[in-house]
């Protein structure tokens, strides 16, 4: 029984309840909206955290999947009258299917080459959305809201519950995965691909599964975003989104899946705190990211924890 309270099911539940409680206590629709964005970002970042932290592969093209998920789902619901919840699922599935075509050749590449290939993919999606997306660069609106069983989720609070429930479900699943031997095999990709191959493991198919799943999570997040905000324009799907996700994962801590939600909360809330300096957001992001990469490579939360322990050790 004691073990149960220490395990990840319990801590995830605690985290989930804390977020919801925060929403229910504050009630301010603005704050709730920010928390919803944080949840959507956390879902996208979870995909990247899986890919980078666990399997050691980089992607700078997550904005492409985010955009595909959002646009496809919106178009399905708006132009083809597909029920929204089905459209969301369908768009995430189609996006992850499209990921295969990028992934099969791209995952043969390593390091910088993989980074730039995925960057190129994301940029292509962005340019295509600008050229041929509905409404072009100025975007389109009137996207239907999400409804579940005839109940339209108008109230931000209900969307908050939905977003974080979906996030926490996948969060639990991925923690399952990372503890399984399959997860350890992914981890082994960091140290020796050669050894894995000589054990009979098909490296490409291993990476492929992870890449597709990470695309699925990010596209799902994009689709959920579309039906919450009900208006889409390409501006939100530029490479900068991928960089933001990267920052969330790095700042939150790349070696743990917890990095995704913590980093997402931090990066999503940061601009709100920095509102008076809004003009300089690029500068501030760049500064924080550079510093944290050089000095706190395991994420700021771990650095913070160490710092606190250090201070406490002086007290006693």
């Amino acid at each position: 029984m004691k073990k149960l309270f220490h395990n990840y099911y319990f801590s995830t539940l605690l985290f989930y309840l804390t977020i919801l409680l925060l929403g229910f206590i504050i009630k301010d629709p603005y704050v709730i909206t920010i928390l919803i964005f944080a949840g959507l970002n956390a879902l996208s970042a979870l995909g990247l955290s899986l890919l980078m932290g666990l399997a050691g592969q980089i992607s700078l093209g997550q904005n492409g999947f985010y955009g595909l998920g959002a646009y496809l789902s919106a178009i399905f619901a708006l132009n083809y009258q597909i029920p929204v919840s089905l459209a969301v699922l369908l768009s995430a599935l189609i996006s992850s299917f499209l990921a295969i075509f990028l992934a099969i050749p791209a995952l043969r590449l390593r390091g910088h080459y993989l980074a730039v290939a995925t960057l190129g993919f994301g940029e292509i999606v962005y340019l295509l959305l600008n050229e041929w997306g509905p409404g072009g660069p100025s975007g389109f609106g009137n996207i239907p809201k999400l409804s579940i069983g005839g109940l339209v989720l108008e109230d931000p609070l209900s969307y908050l519950v939905l977003t974080w429930t979906i996030f926490c479900l996948f969060f639990l699943l991925l923690q399952n995965l990372s503890r399984s031997t399959f997860g350890k095999t992914l981890h082994a990709l960091h140290s020796s691909e050669v050894a894995l191959r000589t054990l009979g493991i098909n490296i490409l198919s291993l990476k492929l599964k992870i890449f597709i799943f990470s695309a699925f999570l990010t596209a799902l997040s994009g689709a959920l975003y579309a039906h919450f905000i009900t208006f889409l324009s390409p501006a939100n799907f530029s490479v900068f989104y991928s960089v933001l996700l990267l920052m969330m994962v790095m700042l939150g801590g790349i070696h743990t899946l917890w990095g995704a939600p913590l980093g997402a909360l931090f990066i999503t809330l940061l601009p709100e705190v920095l509102r008076p300096f809004k003009e300089y957001d690029v500068l501030i992001y760049g500064f924080i990211l550079t510093i944290s990469l050089i000095f706190f490579r395991k994420g700021i939360f771990q650095a913070l924890e160490k710092g606190i322990k250090y201070v406490l050790s002086f007290r006693s």
Binding site: M52, G56, I58, L60, R110, G111, H112, A115, V243, L246, M250, E279, Y280, D281, V282, L283, I284, Y285, G286, F287, L289, T290, L293, I294, R297
Partner: peptide, 22 residues
């Protein structure tokens, strides 16, 4: 660590862009 080096150059590019905008 190649991943880290890529990220560093990206981070620096954002930083430099921010400084130029500033």
């Amino acid at each position: 660590d190649p991943l880290l080096l890529i990220l560093i150059t990206i981070a620096f590019s954002i930083l430099l862009r921010g400084v130029l905008m500033f």
